[in-house]
Design a protein around this nucleic acid. Structure first.
Lengths: 237, 237
DNA sequence: CGACGCTTTGAGGAGATTCAAGACACGTGG
DNA sequence: CCACGTGTCTTGAATCTCCTCAAAGCGTCG
C-alpha cells in the first residue's frame, strides 16, 4: 500500500481512525476492502466554503474526516435555517438521496477534510455487498427517530433546548474519541439559536445563566462542562 | 383468486383503489403480482385501539386502506406527543424500521382497515424485487426532507402552522382522490395543537379567526375551505 | 493595533400559554 | 324521540416566556 507520490502514509479505510464509525460500520473485513477502493479521500474545504449546494445533484455520501459542517436550508424569504451540525467522523449528504437533488447546503464551519463515496459506487455496493444496503436503510430510517427527538425538543423551553444541545454535542464528540467535557463550539451563537429555534440573545443569556449556576464554564466558544449531572437534570426536568 | 369463505369480492393489490399510491408504487405489474401474495389484508381496528405500541417489535409496513391514525411518542413525563397523522391510503410503521422496535404508538382515530406487509416478506422482496429496495430507501430518505419542512414550520407563528396544517391535509386527501375542499377532521383540537406545538385553545381561536375572515367554514370537525388562495397566502406570507 | 463581526446585556413589547368558565355536540339510556 | 351526561370546543383575562431593538463590550484577524 506504499505510494511514492504520497508525502505521508496514505490514509485508507483500514487505518482511518474513524473506521468503526463511518460508512464501513457493520461491514466485514472483505467488505471494507471493497469499500476503500471506491472512496475518494482527502477532499478539503476551507471555512465558509460549500461542500454541496441545495439544488445541486446528489453526488454521493460524504464522511467527515476532520472539521465540522452546518447543514442549511432556506425559507421562502431566503433566510438560512440551520438544519443540523455535522461533527468530525459523521456522515452527510442524505438530504440528496430521496430526490437525487440536494435539499440542503453544506457549509464548512472550519477547515474540513472528507471522504466521498460517489453515487455509482453506492449502487455497485448495494448489489455486491448485501450488508451495505442494510446499513444505508437503517441509517436513513433512523432519521425518523431523530425527527421525533427534534419534535420533542421543539416543545421545550429555551433553557432545556440549550442544555440538550450542549449534551448532544458532548455525546457525539465522546463517541468519536474526543473530550466530552471540554471542547470548542465551532458555530456562532446565531447559528446555535437558529438551529434551536431561539434568538441568539437568548442563547447568550442562557449559557451565561448556566455559568452562574456553575454548570458550565464558557468563554467565547470554548466550553467546559463542570457539572454534567446538573446539566442533564436541567434537560430532563 | 375466488375464495368461498369471502363474503365480498376479495380485495387485492390489483383491484385496490390505492394501488398507485401504496407500497406497489413504482413496481411493475409482475412485481405487484409478487407483492399481493405477501400482504395480509383486511385488518380492522376500532377507534382508540392501537395498531402497534411503542416498544413492541417491528412487524412490518402497514398500508391504511381506510380510516385515519395518529402516531404518538411519549415524553419523559408520559405525555403524548402527536408525531404525525396518517390518512387513508398512506403507509405507516417506519418508526420501527431502524431499530426493529417501534418508536411510536399508532392509534386509530376512527375505524380503520389496513394491509400488512410482514418483515420477513420485506426481506424477501428486497432480494427478489430490485425496485422494492429503491422504493423503501427513497421513502425513508424522504424523511429527511420531511424533517426540514417540519423544522421550518416550527419557526412559524401559530396562525401559519394552522394554515399549513389544513392545506397539508387537503393536499393529501386530494392525492388519494377525496374532496380537497370539504372534509371531516378526524382528530380533536387538542391533537391538532399537540401536533403543531400550540395549545388547543390557540387552535380554536385561529380557526375561528380564519372563519371570520371567510377563509374557511368550520363547524365542530367538519371543515370547508372557502378561499384556498387566501389560506395559502396566509401560510406563505 | 484597528476594524469588523460576534457576543453580551438591558428595556419594552408581542404572541402564546394557562386557568377558568360556559357553550356545544354526541352518544346513551329511558 | 328526547333528556341527560360526558367530553370537546370556545371564549375571556391574566400571565409569562421569549423576541426585538438598541447599544456597549469583547475577540479575532488582517
Amino acid at each position: 500500500m506504499s505510494n511514492a507520490l504520497a508525502t505521508k502514509t496514505a490514509i485508507t479505510c483500514d487505518n482511518c481512525n474513524l473506521d468503526k464509525l463511518c460508512i464501513p460500520k457493520g461491514l466485514n473485513r472483505s467488505e471494507v476492502g471493497e469499500l476503500k477502493l471506491l472512496v475518494s479521500r482527502n477532499n478539503i474545504r476551507q471555512k465558509g466554503e460549500a461542500i454541496y449546494h441545495a439544488g445541486s445533484s446528489f453526488r454521493g455520501i460524504i464522511a467527515l474526516r476532520s472539521g465540522s459542517v452546518k447543514l442549511l436550508s432556506f425559507d421562502r424569504h431566503g433566510n438560512e435555517i440551520v438544519v443540523d451540525f455535522i461533527l468530525p467522523g459523521e456522515l452527510l449528504g442524505f438530504d440528496g438521496m430521496s430526490l437525487q437533488v440536494h435539499n440542503c447546503t453544506a457549509i464548512a464551519l472550519e477547515t474540513v477534510n472528507f471522504c466521498h463515496l460517489p453515487t455509482h459506487q453506492i449502487e455497485a455496493l448495494t448489489l455486491n455487498t448485501p450488508g451495505f444496503y442494510q446499513i444505508l436503510l437503517q441509517r436513513s430510517c433512523n432519521q425518523f427517530d431523530v425527527q421525533v427527538q427534534k419534535m420533542m425538543l421543539s416543545r421545550r423551553s429555551a433553557e432545556e433546548r440549550v442544555a440538550s444541545f450542549i449534551l448532544h454535542i458532548s455525546d457525539r464528540l465522546k463517541i468519536r474519541g474526543y473530550s466530552e467535557l471540554e471542547f470548542r463550539l465551532t458555530m456562532s451563537r446565531e447559528e446555535i439559536g437558529n438551529h434551536l429555534g431561539i434568538a441568539h440573545e437568548t442563547v447568550s443569556r442562557i449559557v451565561h445563566h448556566f455559568q452562574s449556576l456553575e454548570i458550565i464554564e464558557i468563554k467565547a466558544r470554548q466550553l467546559k462542562i463542570i457539572n454534567k449531572k446538573k446539566l442533564f437534570s436541567f434537560y430532563k426536568e
